[in-house]
Write a protein that binds this DNA or RNA. Structure first.
Length: 495
RNA sequence: GCCUCCAUAGACUAGUGGUUAGGUCACCGCCCUUUCACGGCGGCAGCGGGGGUUCGAAUCCCCCUGGAGGUACCA
């Protein structure tokens, strides 16, 4: 049996962390088994579905690098196409298909029209709650005569269509992750399968689509567990083959409640904005609910595909921990080759207007030397401008605290040292890290002072702060001219 | 209220009847070091509670507690 799985988001918002992980697990399971990963847009919520959401979701999955085999496609201009033979992959384009199947149920007496008003239903529900009873539809319209139906229709009342649930026995299924789950059918009512607008409801459309698209495994969030018995009833009513189910646990916020805006960013694309590498996010998400016995933490995309095992997923909800994500992000940044990282860094420097667009290869080679000094320090890509600006700007910004601590305190000493070092540097013919280090150390020895007493003031005088790359290396990259100028400037301003 | 799922350190997890309960992040300490990082070494910290079953339970069963999800003409 070839595996066919799908990710079926409803376009009522951006792609969030939970959805991303569901998509990822589907993707990994498909790739691992050499199966197909299908993307289907469940846009039957006429009120909340938007085109922007469709785009945001598509971009989000694309950014994560989860290519899908069938479903909507999107090109550089943002126009939407489609690929795969089982489409269309937008449910609202499939209404004719659903109509057919609804009619079948109606003809076979397995479904019926219900004319009860939402107000009436709401009132009954409230009443049931008051009496501590399960709010269940009372089957009022189950046995309407054709005359009664005609009567309602003549009044212009649009019915919903309900599935007739016999309420006998149990619905049992074996979930790949949760094990056996059973529901008492008598607790379920005659649920709505088509809204009065004529659009099918989620529980109906998924079943038709999953069956027609030959989905072999339904991998989705465990918030869908309670929908599953209804869906199984429909599979049975149509005589469709029932797919395997894998309900993956939810991702929770730091306080253990459902992940929401309260917990900060939940949108995948927001993580891009925050400076995360997609591979780091993917790696983190993979680990949130799945692990290998040897406790491996870092996986390449290929390794993930190779090692991911749907059957070894955790069955309990996991709290999203951005500390660990951040650690992984650092790991991925450090693992980049200098060339790769330079490309990434340049785009962030461009956005921050620290370098111009259309850099020449020579510019890039020079930048590479600068970037090499700080790559290991980057945790968020958004750190990049702040880490490099002192190397790139003509005018440095002085951090007042650092200036106070290193230059102003012991002013006479630092003044003398800076003046003398300025002279020494002016006289230095070969301006390399090695020569600079020699110079600094011999100066310290001659004057019998600690090396730190020179290093620190020079660092602040040439960079404006105490934190930064290895002193001699960045001085070399900066070049003699700039170093001299900065020292002169500092002496002018603070002494 | 009712239904369903879940329960190992602060977080993610390994573990399927006998382990000094293992790993990772975070945190703390030490080392490396001109700063910041990186890296290395070490440490703190856990089986929610109560009953069973068993010679023996983190592991199997029951109850409780706690958490999550559902209970829609939303998905």
């Amino acid at each position: 049996m070839t595996v066919r799985v799908r990710f079926a988001p409803s376009p009522t918002g951006f792609l969030h962390i939970g959805g991303a992980r569901t998509a990822l697990y589907n993707y990994l399971f498909a790739k691992h088994t050499n199966g197909k990963f299908i993307l289907r847009i469940e846009d039957t919520d006429e009120l909340r579905s938007t085109d922007e959401s469709v785009l945001a979701i598509l971009y989000g999955i694309q950014w994560l690098g989860l290519g899908w085999d069938e479903g909507p496609t999107i090109d550089a201009n943002g126009s939407i196409g489609t690929k795969g033979e089982f489409g269309p992959y937008f449910q609202m384009q499939r209404t004719k298909i659903y109509d057919e199947y609804v009619q079948k149920l109606l003809d076979e007496g397995k479904a019926y029209k219900c004319f009860c008003s939402t107000e009436e239903l709401a009132a009954k529900r409230e009443q049931a709650q008051k009496e501590h009873k399960a709010p269940k539809y009372d089957n009022k319209c189950r046995n309407l005569s054709t005359e009664q139906i005609k009567n309602f229709e003549n009044q212009g009342i649009k019915p919903v269509i309900r599935f007739k649930n016999d309420g006998i026995g149990e619905t049992i299924f074996k979930d790949i992750i949760k094990g056996e789950i059973r529901f008492d059918n008598s607790l379920l009512d005659d649920f709505v399968i088509v809204k009065s607008s004529g659009v099918p409801v989620y529980n109906f459309a998924v079943v038709i689509d999953d069956a027609l698209m030959e989905i072999s495994h339904v991998v989705r969030g465990d918030d869908h567990i309670s929908n599953t018995p209804r869906q199984i009833m429909l599979y049975k009513a149509f005589g469709f083959k029932i797919p395997k189910f894998a309900h993956i646990p939810m991702i929770l916020g730091s306080d253990g409640s459902r992940l929401s805006k309260r917990h900060g960013a939940t949108s995948v694309l927001a993580y891009r904005e925050m400076g995360f590498l997609p591979d780091a996010l993917v790696n983190y998400l993979a680990l949130l609910g799945w692990s290998t016995q040897d406790s491996q933490q870092i996986f390449s995309h290929e390794e993930l595909v190779q090692k991911f095992d749907l059957y070894k997923c955790s069955s309990s909800a996991a709290i999203f921990d951005d500390k660990k994500l951040l650690w992984l992000n650092g790991e991925y940044i450090r693992a980049k080759s200098l060339d790769e990282f330079t490309e990434i860094a340049i785009s962030w420097l461009e956005d921050a207007k620290l370098v111009s667009k259309n850099l020449t290869d020579v510019d890039k080679e020079n930048l590479k030397k600068i970037i090499a000094l700080e790559q290991e320090k980057v945790k968020y890509l958004t750190d990049i401008p702040g880490l490099f600006d002192f190397m790139l700007k003509d005018e440095i910004e002085y951090n007042s605290e650092d200036v106070e601590k290193v230059l102003i305190k012991n002013k006479e000493i630092s003044n003398k040292i800076l003046k003398e070092m300025l002279e020494n540097i002016r006289n230095l013919e070969v301006f390399t890290a090695e020569k600079l280090e020699e110079l600094f150390r011999s100066y310290a020895e001659k004057n019998s002072i600690k090396t730190g007493q020179i290093f620190h003031p020079v660092r602040v005088a040439t960079s404006g702060r105490t934190k930064g790359p290895s002193l001699f290396h960045y001085l070399e990259v900066l070049g003699k001219e700039k170093v001299v100028k900065r020292l002169e400037n500092t002496l002018k301003i603070y002494y």
